[in-house]
Simulated scan of single mutants.
Amino acid sequence: LEREEGLPPLELLRRRESKWLEMTAHWDKTMARRYKKVRGAAGGPARMWHQSSLTQGTELEEAPGTQQWLETIEKDIHRQFPFHEMFLSPEGHGQRGLLQLLKAYTVYRPQEGYCQAQGPIAAMLLMHMPAEQAFWCLVQISERYLPGYYSPEMEAVLLDGEVFMALLRRVCHRAYKHLQKHNVGPMLFVTEWFLCLFCRTLPFPTVLRIWDAFFSEGVKVLFRVGLVLVRLALGSGEKLRDCVGVVETLEKLRNIPPEQLQEDAFMAELKGGCCPTSWLGHLTHI
């Protein structure tokens, strides 16, 4: 089989898998002795996400769910990675499993219900782990890593959008001034990035590396990734030359050259220190 362009060589993936299998087999010892190495390592498997997010395991209980939420979820299911073989068919195990997982969350947290941005996250989780583990990872993302993001009012993500703009003002003032000049607020681009953990924005291999870091370090990773994206899109006068308004600016943010988003290139940018950790220390849910 031919490898998809941009994916790491099979030999490299096998070496990474072997390394991660050894670390996850002795997870507590690994995290105690080698945390920094785990944090910076590439290609962490789903088990690492599960180990990082799971606080307790229980079996999912069958429940009918609320008709309102079921109807909303059913309308969204086919939109989640429609070209991925797992989610091609409405009768396939991917779409059925995604429906059950999202429904289970509305039963588990009826006061929050369902947020559309949870759909692609749940789908990504199901690609990499069994349904029950994916459910508990979604619970921990929603309640431990990003509390308030998926509530009906989305208070936390709105606040973090403003914090992001304040950081951008310090890190890349040229881009910040441009966004302010054209009234391009964080709700127009940051919200989807953060809510969906970039899985609708970046190539799969890059998303997986970012999720590795996210499960290890928390929400600060989302800020770093977002700042890199804005800098890549709007960080110079040349890049801003054709951005004469809101539409052109958003197009530039959505169409960063693909080669700059590939795994190795992007992670090198991310590790380049565009946003010092000390600037993020005040965030309450880190």
Rank of each mutant, 00 (worst) to 15 (best):
Leu102Pro: 03
Arg109Pro: 01
Val157Cys: 07
Pro82Met: 05
Ala123Val: 02
Met127Glu: 05
Pro110Met: 10
Thr106Ile: 02
Ala122Thr: 13
Leu125Asn: 01
Glu71Pro: 04
Pro90Val: 10
Thr55Gln: 12
Arg109Leu: 11
Gly94Ala: 08
Leu99Cys: 06
Leu126Arg: 01
Glu61Gly: 02
Val107Ala: 11
Ala123Leu: 08
Glu155His: 09
Ser53Ile: 04
Tyr149Cys: 05
Gln140Trp: 05
His128Arg: 11
Gly148Leu: 06
Leu126Thr: 01
Glu112Trp: 02
Glu85Ser: 08
Ala63His: 13
Glu143Arg: 14
Gln133Glu: 13
Tyr150Gly: 00
Ala117Phe: 03
Ala156Ser: 14
Gln56Leu: 11
Gln80Val: 15
Leu102Lys: 00
Ala117Gln: 06
Leu60Lys: 06
Glu153Gly: 04
Gln56Pro: 00
Asp76Phe: 05
Pro130Gly: 05
Met154Tyr: 07
Lys75Thr: 08
Gln140Val: 00
Ala117Asn: 03
Arg96Asn: 02
Leu101Val: 10
Pro90Phe: 07
Ser89Asp: 15
Gly148Ser: 05
Ser52Arg: 10
Pro64Phe: 04
Thr72Leu: 14
His84Arg: 02
Ser52Phe: 01
Glu74Lys: 12
Met86Pro: 07
Glu132Cys: 14
Leu60Asn: 08
Val157Pro: 12
Glu74Ser: 13
Arg144Ser: 11
Met86Val: 13
Ser89Phe: 03
Ser142Asn: 13
Tyr150Met: 07
Pro120Leu: 02
Ile77Val: 15
Thr106Asn: 03
Gln67Lys: 15
Ala131Ser: 09
Pro110Phe: 11
Phe81Lys: 14
Met86Thr: 12
Gln111Ile: 04
Arg96Val: 15
Val107Pro: 01
Ser151Phe: 08
Gln95His: 08
Glu71Asn: 13
Tyr114Phe: 15
Ser151Asn: 11
Gln111Val: 02
Tyr114Ser: 08
Leu146Glu: 03
Leu54Cys: 15
Met48Arg: 12
Ile141Glu: 04
Gly97Met: 01
Cys115His: 11
Gln56Gly: 08
Arg144Asn: 13
Ala123Met: 02
Asp76Met: 05
His50Gln: 07
Gln118Asp: 03
Thr106Gln: 03
Pro64Gln: 08
Gly65Gln: 08
Arg144Tyr: 08
Gly57Lys: 14
Gly119Tyr: 02
Ala117Ile: 06
Leu54Gln: 12
Met154Arg: 14
Leu60Ser: 10
Glu61Ser: 11
Gly92Leu: 06
Leu88Arg: 13
Gln111Lys: 14
Val157Lys: 06
Trp69Leu: 01
His78Pro: 01
His84Tyr: 07
Ile73Phe: 06
Ala156Asp: 08
Gln100Lys: 15
